[in-house]
Amino acid sequence: MKSCLIVDDSSVIRKVARRILEDMDFIVDEAEDGQEAYEKCAQEMPDVILLDWQMPIMSGLEFLKTLRGYTGGDKPKIVYCLAERDIGHIAMARKAGANDHMLKPFDQQTLESKFQPFV
C-alpha cells in the first residue's frame, strides 16, 4: 500500500482528505504544519504528500524547498493545495518541486483524480 502525508493546518481538510485517501487504500498520516511534516518525513518518507500553501511555523513552500533538498526528499510525489488560483504561487510551487496542484475546497472526485496515478 502507498503512504500519504496530509499537511494542512485545517483539521477539517485533513479529516476529509484522510477519509477519501484511506478509501483509495492509502496509509495516511497527518501534520499540522511544515515543520511537523518535515520531522515526519525525516523519520519515514511517504510516497505522496498533499501539501497546503499557507500554514503557521513553516509554510508549504518552505517545506517543499527544504524537503526537496533533503536526502530522499526528491522521491515523494507532491500535490500542492491552494485556496485560490494564483499563477505566481503555482509557478513557485512547481519550480520548488511540486508535481501537481489543486484548489480548495476540493471534492472527492477532484482529490481522487489527482491521487489515482499514485495508487
Rank of each mutant, 00 (worst) to 15 (best):
K2Y: 01
L5W: 01
L5N: 02
I6R: 05
V7F: 05
D8F: 09
D8K: 07
D9P: 10
D9A: 08
D9W: 08
D9M: 09
S10H: 07
S10D: 12
S11V: 15
S11R: 15
V12N: 09
K15N: 14
V16C: 06
R18L: 09
I20M: 02
L21E: 01
E22F: 07
M24V: 02
M24H: 02
D25F: 10
D25R: 13
V28K: 03
V28P: 01
E30Q: 10
E30Y: 03
A31P: 03
A31W: 02
D33A: 04
G34S: 08
Q35D: 11
Q35G: 12
E36G: 10
A37Y: 02
A37W: 03
K40S: 03
Q43H: 11
Q43K: 14
Q43S: 10
M45K: 03
M45R: 01
P46Y: 03
P46K: 02
P46N: 03
I49E: 00
L50M: 15
L51Y: 07
D52Q: 11
D52W: 09
D52K: 11
I57N: 10
M58H: 05
M58V: 05
L61D: 07
E62F: 09
E62W: 09
E62Q: 13
F63L: 13
F63R: 04
F63E: 02
K65A: 09
L67G: 00
G69I: 08
G69A: 14
Y70W: 12
G72D: 03
G73C: 04
G73A: 04
D74N: 12
D74P: 04
D74I: 06
P76R: 00
K77Q: 06
V79L: 06
V79G: 00
V79H: 02
Y80V: 06
Y80F: 15
L82Q: 08
A83E: 14
E84T: 13
E84Y: 10
E84G: 09
E84R: 11
E84H: 13
R85N: 14
R85W: 10
R85E: 15
D86L: 08
I87Q: 14
G88F: 13
H89Y: 13
H89E: 13
A91R: 14
A91Y: 11
M92D: 15
A93T: 08
R94W: 08
K95P: 03
A96M: 07
A96S: 10
G97R: 00
G97A: 03
A98K: 05
H101C: 13
H101N: 14
H101V: 09
L103A: 06
K104C: 12
D107W: 07
Q108C: 11
T110V: 15
E112H: 05
S113Q: 12
F115K: 00
F115H: 01
P117H: 01
F118S: 01
V119S: 13
